[in-house]
Design a binder for these strands. Structure first.
Lengths: 137, 137
DNA sequence: CTTGAATCTGTAGTCGCTACAGATTGTACC
DNA sequence: GGTACAATCTGTAGCGACTACAGATTCAAG
């Protein structure tokens, strides 16, 4: 028999990483995770490296990387060499994206705050929020 | 015949509002927009009020309101009275949400910027971005 | 009356999961 | 060995908010 003490079932992986079982299977289906070994009955068995790979994926997702970006990062990691520049490029793109989103949301925040503030006065004939929403750009 | 000069086809509405035709039909399907009049042949005909309603919806979407929130806002507008408080509540919820998202993104920005900066030094043995992604939370 | 643009309905795809249904397997206890 | 019950299996459908077709029809201009 193989060394059973070093493999874990999908439920244990889920508890350890906080990732739902369905999502682990989903990552396998879209080939972010390799197909794991199986018991005679067909249950998945994960080794340490596979759990680490999942953790890597989850951290990337927390940072807002899209699945395809993670795939690219993993390819670079798997490839091994000369990849630091490429990794940096992907990360910088992501940073630009985040900064753009922040700027967009700041504008929204301003508009929404103005609308709420106009309501606050409580002495308007018609609802200022609705008026604002009807206003032309 | 009805007054044809005051109705427009869906293509004209699309050009006027910048909203794709498919999306206009989609808003009708999910009942954000009323079913418009039709020509004998079945083409949709929109009147001024309907175009304004669409503009209202589009402005709400720009501000990040979810479809269900817009539905609630439209119900309040249609209802007519005593709704300013409710409108304000929906808008405030939205504002809280936007502020939370900004805070989240700021954290991301920090992490990503650190990672990129570490890359910039160019004197590390292994890729610092990959290391950061492998690090435990 | 013909041509070509516009519009019609309906369905399937996008992203990143999530939620089932219904069948099978693994494991602990007696 | 038997039995209960948890864990896991596969496969499919759904979410939000559209978007992208296919294939049929209708409209407007000349």
């Amino acid at each position: 028999m193989a060394d059973a003490s070093r493999v874990v079932a999908i439920g244990a992986v889920s508890r350890r990483t906080g990732c739902p079982i369905e999502t682990i299977r989903y990552y396998e289906k879209i080939a972010l995770l390799p197909k794991p070994a199986r018991t005679a009955g067909g249950h998945r068995l994960y080794r340490k490296g596979e759990v680490e790979r999942l953790s890597f994926i989850l951290r990337c997702r927390q940072l807002g990387f899209a699945i395809d970006e993670i795939r690219a990062l993993l390819d670079l990691v798997d490839g091994g060499e000369n990849s630091c520049t490429a990794v940096k490029a992907i990360t910088e793109e992501r940073l630009v994206d985040v900064r753009r989103k922040i700027a967009d949301l700041r504008k929204l925040e301003g508009t929404l705050a103005d609308m709420v503030a106009a309501c606050g006065t409580g002495q308007v004939p018609d609802c200022p929020v609705i008026e604002a929403l009807h206003a032309k750009p």
